[in-house]
Amino acid sequence: MVAPLESPFSRARIAPSLWDPVIRISHWGLALVVLSNAILTEGGSTLHVLAGWIGIGLLALRLLWGIVGPQEARFSAFPPNPLAALRHLRQLAQGRPEEYGSHNPAGAMMAYALWGLLAVVIATGLVMTGGRTPMQVAADQAAVASGDWSALVKPGESGDDEDENEGWKDAAEEVHEVAANLILFLVLLHVAGVALESRAMGRNLVRPMLTGSDKDRRK
């Protein structure tokens, strides 16, 4: 069997030359969702909501994988540790970062920050749409387009209730936008970090997240 890591952030092993398929799919899937919803789709549109719901699935799958997945995919292999993250960044600045069996401590903090912000964006998005599925959003929009505005009024909403609801939705919208912009900022930071780390380690860190290389796999 594969030898278990003795401690989190073990120095005995280097990160896998190819991440497992669930990690890769959730990584690039979420990247696509974030980019498409930030740049391509219009907020509130069916496509925007649909991409968001796919994001829920991908995030849920990755979080489940963090509990039941293989060693280096589990949260226990890269616990959130801000002090270790700072130490790693200092080593990176000095040009000699340590090797870890999973994400390095700084990368781990980035992953948790992105997942947390994604959860916030998803939750606020659900508040804004009243938790309607993309299918319902599409149906409502089709109804409104055909002149039936009653689709905008949901049963049970009236008077003060509605005002309070609108207040919540406005607040959610603010948080939704701020968190989304924060994600884009962190994505830039993440890409820069990977580039720096790859250079300092003299090894392409993007390849293990894509297909790996035949050489690495056969060795």
């Binding site: 719901w53 796919i54 699935g57 849920a60 799958l61 489940l64 599925t133």
Partner: peptide, 13 residues
């Protein structure tokens, strides 16, 4: 997983 997410949304509705 994607199916579950959509189903759960529908069920909550």
């Amino acid at each position: 997983t994607l199916a579950v997410v959509f189903f759960i949304g529908d069920v909550i509705g």
